[in-house]
Each structure stands twice: as structure tokens, then as C-alpha cells.
Amino acid sequence: MPVTTLDPATALVVIDLQNGVMGAPGTPYSTADVLERTVRLADAFRARDLPVVLVRVTHAADDADAVPGRTEAPRQAGARPEGWDRIVDALAGHPGDIVVTKRNWSAFYGTDLDLQLRRRGVTQIVLTGIATSIGVESTARAAHEHGYHVTLATDAMTDLSEEAHRNSVERIFPRLGETGGTQDVLKLLAER
């Protein structure tokens, strides 16, 4: 389903566009392209006094707050470089933005994201970020479960795997909300 409308109280939620994530290769879009499109969206939301939420993921240096449980995937060992969890400069530094720190895939679990959105009367979110099939999809699922209208700017997100990105965009996202491109969202914002 294409993007049809934006509620009067719509927020942009940006997943993990931070220093330590931006260095990863993105597919099908480069991380630089995702950042450029997200910056355009953030500027448009700010110009209309709509909330911009910058979500970052972090972990304690000793992994004391790492998510428990057995997985087949190995955990990243060792300390991460200084500043790896800082929001990229192109998005950071706007005093009205909301910064949410997560320690899981979803930006809702264990954070105050829902509270921050509800305090502002937000009924819809537009999602961008990295990685499509992990942080973005987990947040989209939780937003849907929390009763938000979900819009996914699919050209403003990317993944480590094109197959995983495609699966999220083609099979999962249409069940959670509306999908479209950055230009679709910008057009609807311009019509407000």
C-alpha cells in the first residue's frame, strides 16, 4: 500500500544512524544515501514543528547490559571505539529533537520512546535507519503493536543483506503499515 496520509501528529523516528553503524556497508542503498535522505526528512519535519526522534544503540563496555539468552550468532567481543554510539553529526545538535538510547533491537523495548511520543500526542511514525531487518523492523513491529500508524520510508533504510532488506520491505512492512519513498513522505509534508 502506498503512503496515503500523514496524521497531524506524526513523528520521524530514525534508527541507529550513529558513528559505529555508518561504517558498515549498506545494501541495497549505501549508508551515505540513507543518511542524506534521512537528513532531508528530518529537516522537513523540524520545519513543520513535528517531532524528530534519534535512536541510538549502545552497550556497557563490559557488556553487563547485553541482552541475555542463547543465540547461534556470536556476540561482538571487546570494547567498542570511543564515540561509536554517538548520533552522526549531520543529524545531531538540534535542541528540539528527542534522543532515545536502546540496548535491544527495538526502540520501544526498555526505553521511554512510547512515553515521549504519547506526551506529544503522536499517532503516526515514519521510520528510517539501519538495519532494515533488525532495528527498523523490530521498531516497526512494536509501533504497530502499540497502536501507531506506521509509515516506512524504504529508500531511507538499508541492511547488511539485500535479501533481508527485501524480505522486510516486501513481506513484513505491508502488514505493519504503509511503505513509500522519501519523496512520497516529503510530498505529503509539503501538502500540510
Rank of each mutant, 00 (worst) to 15 (best):
residue 2 P to L: 10
residue 2 P to F: 02
residue 4 T to C: 03
residue 6 L to D: 00
residue 9 A to E: 14
residue 10 T to C: 02
residue 12 L to G: 13
residue 13 V to W: 00
residue 14 V to D: 08
residue 15 I to P: 03
residue 17 L to I: 04
residue 19 N to C: 01
residue 19 N to V: 06
residue 22 M to D: 00
residue 23 G to D: 13
residue 24 A to T: 10
residue 24 A to D: 11
residue 24 A to R: 05
residue 27 T to Y: 02
residue 30 S to Y: 08
residue 31 T to A: 03
residue 32 A to V: 10
residue 33 D to R: 01
residue 35 L to N: 10
residue 37 R to M: 12
residue 40 R to I: 02
residue 40 R to G: 09
residue 40 R to K: 14
residue 41 L to P: 08
residue 43 D to R: 14
residue 44 A to E: 14
residue 49 D to K: 11
residue 51 P to G: 05
residue 51 P to I: 02
residue 52 V to S: 11
residue 52 V to Q: 09
residue 53 V to W: 04
residue 53 V to Q: 06
residue 54 L to V: 00
residue 59 H to R: 03
residue 60 A to D: 01
residue 61 A to K: 00
residue 61 A to F: 01
residue 61 A to N: 00
residue 62 D to T: 02
residue 65 D to W: 06
residue 68 P to S: 08
residue 69 G to S: 03
residue 70 R to S: 07
residue 76 Q to N: 09
residue 77 A to D: 04
residue 79 A to L: 01
residue 80 R to C: 02
residue 86 R to L: 13
residue 87 I to H: 08
residue 90 A to K: 14
residue 91 L to G: 10
residue 96 G to S: 15
residue 96 G to K: 15
residue 96 G to I: 09
residue 97 D to P: 09
residue 97 D to Y: 08
residue 100 V to Q: 09
residue 100 V to P: 12
residue 101 T to C: 14
residue 103 R to S: 03
residue 107 A to I: 08
residue 107 A to M: 10
residue 108 F to V: 00
residue 112 D to Q: 13
residue 114 D to A: 15
residue 114 D to R: 12
residue 115 L to C: 01
residue 115 L to G: 01
residue 115 L to F: 04
residue 118 R to M: 05
residue 119 R to D: 08
residue 119 R to K: 06
residue 119 R to V: 05
residue 121 G to A: 14
residue 122 V to L: 13
residue 126 V to Q: 10
residue 126 V to P: 05
residue 127 L to C: 03
residue 128 T to S: 04
residue 129 G to Q: 08
residue 129 G to L: 04
residue 129 G to N: 11
residue 130 I to K: 11
residue 131 A to E: 08
residue 132 T to N: 08
residue 132 T to Q: 11
residue 133 S to H: 15
residue 135 G to D: 13
residue 135 G to N: 13
residue 135 G to E: 07
residue 136 V to A: 14
residue 136 V to K: 10
residue 137 E to A: 11
residue 141 R to D: 00
residue 142 A to P: 05
residue 142 A to S: 15
residue 143 A to I: 06
residue 143 A to R: 11
residue 144 H to D: 11
residue 145 E to S: 13
residue 148 Y to D: 01
residue 148 Y to I: 00
residue 152 L to D: 04
residue 152 L to R: 01
residue 153 A to W: 00
residue 153 A to S: 13
residue 156 A to E: 02
residue 159 D to T: 10
residue 162 E to W: 01
residue 162 E to D: 12
residue 163 E to M: 10
residue 165 H to I: 00
residue 166 R to T: 14
residue 166 R to Y: 09
residue 167 N to C: 06
residue 167 N to E: 06
residue 168 S to D: 08
residue 173 F to A: 15
residue 173 F to Y: 15
residue 174 P to A: 12
residue 175 R to H: 12
residue 176 L to V: 02
residue 176 L to Q: 06
residue 176 L to D: 00
residue 177 G to V: 09
residue 178 E to M: 14
residue 179 T to W: 01
residue 180 G to E: 15
residue 181 G to T: 13
residue 185 V to A: 07
residue 186 L to M: 07
residue 186 L to H: 07
residue 188 L to R: 13
residue 188 L to M: 02
residue 189 L to D: 07
residue 189 L to P: 02
residue 190 A to M: 05
residue 190 A to E: 14
residue 190 A to D: 15
residue 191 E to N: 04
residue 191 E to A: 15
residue 191 E to L: 09
residue 192 R to D: 14
